[in-house]
Amino acid sequence: MPSPRNWREIPARYRLEAARCRGCGKVVYPARRACPACRGQEFEKTMLSWKGKVVTSTVVQVAPTEFQMEAPYAVAIVETPEGARLMTQVVDCDPGAVQPGMEVALVFRLIRREGHGGILCYGFKAVPAA
């Protein structure tokens, strides 16, 4: 992935920046030009809470090449209190213990190294709530 793309994706990825639709109030993560619920185009910036609940999850045993050293690892869909849902790994626990309904905290972590240059890509992962 070329570096301008990494740069573009930073607000959502580095600080969980989202957008609240002025038309219907939906919290859209990451921000988009048009609201997926009402197609409104007026938004205000909002931040997601660094916590949420697992909606569904899996444990990836057979991983893509870039993640092979980490397998097995849990990946989940997490819903934040604002109603936004995001996909994220769940770490710092037994991957088998990650199940729907689990409360998690979102933490800033290294996600992957990309391309021949090994660009470090950061973002959020989930950990069991304290």
Binding site: V55, T58, V60, E70, V75, M87, P100, R112
Partner: peptide, 24 residues
């Protein structure tokens, strides 16, 4: 790519999440 594959999910992984939700 930006929201799913970036985090190391695979296609079996996505359908596994669908399966677990269906089980629930």
């Amino acid at each position: 790519q930006e929201l799913e594959a970036f985090h190391g999910i695979t296609f079996p992984g996505l359908y596994a999440m669908i399966a677990r939700a269906h089980m629930q």
